[in-house]
Design a protein around this nucleic acid. Structure first.
Lengths: 346, 346
DNA sequence: GGTTAGCACTCAGGCGGCAAGAGTGCTAAA
DNA sequence: TTTAGCACTCTTGCCGCCTGAGTGCTAACC
């Protein structure tokens, strides 16, 4: 099978996909002739469509209805036909002015980003919280709440604030806590949480009978503080927009999707894939490898701060999605978030 | 119109409502005769049903289909027919063992409660976060992040941890911050956040030209810290369960409900009504005064800690809801949460 | 007077047939 | 290689029909 598509086939495929994106209906040969720059008869278009179906780019829901793109079709479209322009000035302005970005804590900033993604794109916005493990330690503080409870607050380089309640079995004076605080802040600043944990553990192992009682306590306290990094969280906004999509009028499918949203782990895993890569990543349909969200696509881009890549954000919607419109939104939001986090981290 | 219902009418109304709750279908006279303890003919039941319709407790979707309860019907059922038993041992055990309740911070605890409510009831679980204003101040801590940024962490009596980033225009040394911290913790402990704010404001006004420069700074810093209590948040779990309800097969309605969930303010307002009251409150249909969630009912109970009522929690679902099963779940969860918060606050 | 049997009536929902419309595949001509 | 023409397919909406569930009413019954 000659898998090369000539220019005309590509143009027709593009027209079909864009028409389908616009109408959500199977598209017939006639509609394409109207869309195409060159003048072609429906019959010719039909011949090409038959080829495209042969080659797996299209399929028809039943004999004699129009064609709809397959996943392979979308993939080809996204990879080679899609021309992504930069984001428009007006959209850029809208993102920047419609949301309050300044003076937010990281978690609020990320929520605002998710909302912005959703409302700008009319799809569901997703932002994964940074994996704590990978973030850079900046500051720790212990707040004694009672004789057996201590609140640990730590702040990462990029401004993520995490707090955790830990139980202690021995009473510590405020002065001792302060000493421990100072020790940790002095020795651990600049390390990633992961490196810090490793260091703490190895120190504890190495110096089992730790001569310095205070140090010993510091070790124990802080390793308790960092134990159990909560599994990745995802901020989801605009789920109701999913219900707007005509292709999800099937309640059963809708239920599966919403259940996946609730569990979040699926979405986290998908977004996590986008963290490494640069630029906008597009995952189409079964490429997600999760049948719950069959027929959905995810557009993701990673955001970072000076200290490196932190996580990724994006949107999820039906595979029939106006990629040309949506990709710049995701792209710009990611860079905006990165920029804001950089500003915040000093 | 003699609005008094005699015993038999009540029994029949009860049977109709319970049958409808079980089947989600309009119920006919025949089905009722089977359900009823006393032996009655369908014709008799029909007569009574006609009366009940006359009086506004029932209505029929169209001539010659069974009857369904009106809101007034549900209201009567809930007020006078419903016999709520205590929670069963098995359910109690399930709530307590299926979730990790110990050693959680308040926000995690409340999320666990929302999940538990949802999974126990098979409806959507709701928990409102305490209004910060009403909670009792316990401890404040300032963490200096840079020359212009300070992280304020404060803890309430019941263990709610709140942090906020504030910008400062003058540099403060660590020692100064500590002095301010100590001052605030000493003078403000035990006050409600609201009282504290008032006190701060009045102090600032009274002593405009404050002689003590440090005190002046303390005032400014802390009033910035407490400014802008975020409007009430609600933890929602199990929204996908809403899709399971046969009465919401209508996409339009579903969309409206999900939009309300996203905005949260509607739910917060409803839960807030439940804060004052004691015991379980039931809000049915249009009593919610929000058309977006027409046909829904909310079951709520307030939770509290030693320092007083904090907020409320509950579930939301279609008005056709097994109240007898659901009310004890909400009730028990509220007392469980209250108990756990009490344990935590020492 | 309350209760019941009987009966006519109503209405939703399912099913089959029918026509229209959209779209295809194929063939033959340009 | 493209196109016009044509037969064919399949969905969709519509109409009418029937069935079943359920009602309201009336008249008989206890």
């Amino acid at each position: 099978m000659a898998n090369e598509l000539n220019t005309r086939s590509q143009q027709i495929l593009e027209a079909i996909i864009e028409e389908h994106i616009a109408t959500a209906q199977p598209v017939g040969s006639r509609a394409i002739t109207a869309r195409l720059a060159v003048r072609l008869s429906p019959a010719t278009v039909r011949n090409v469509m038959a080829e495209l179906e042969e080659q797996g780019y299209l399929c028809s829901p039943h004999t004699s209805s129009g064609r709809i793109p397959t996943e392979q079709g979308y993939r080809f479209y996204v990879d080679t036909l899609l021309r992504v322009s930069g984001i428009g000035r007006r959209q850029k302005d809208r993102i920047e002015t419609e949301y309050q970005w300044k003076g937010l804590q990281m978690s609020e900033l990320l929520r605002a980003a998710s909302k912005a993604l959703s409302s700008m794109s009319s799809y569901t916005g997703l932002v994964m919280l940074p994996r704590l493990q990978k973030t850079i330690f900046r500051h720790i503080e212990f707040v004694k709440l009672s004789s057996s409870k201590v609140l640990v607050v730590f702040v990462t380089q990029s401004g993520l604030v995490q707090n955790k309640l830990i139980e202690i079995d021995e009473d510590l004076t405020a002065a001792e806590l302060e000493q421990i605080t100072n020790y940790l802040n002095r020795t651990m600043a600049g390390l990633s949480i992961q490196a810090m944990q490793n260091q703490l553990l190895s120190k504890m192992a190495r110096e089992k009978a730790l001569y310095d009682r205070l140090l010993q306590r510091a070790m124990r306290l802080s390793s308790a503080a960092f134990a159990g990094d909560p599994e990745g969280d995802v901020i989801i906004e605009g789920t109701s927009l999913f219900l707007e999509q005509p292709e999800f009028c099937d309640m059963e499918r809708m239920k599966r999707i919403f259940r996946a949203f609730e569990r979040k782990s699926v979405l986290f895993e998908l977004l996590d894939r986008g963290v490494q890569g640069s630029g906008v990543q597009i995952i189409i349909g079964s490429e997600t490898e999760h049948s719950e969200i069959a027929g959905c696509s995810l557009i993701a881009a990673s955001y970072s701060s000076r200290s490196g890549s932190l996580g990724s954000l994006g949107i999820i919607g039906p595979s029939r999605m106006p990629y040309a419109k949506v990709v710049p939104i995701v792209d710009y939001t990611a860079t905006l978030v990165s920029r804001l986090l950089d500003n915040d981290s000093d």
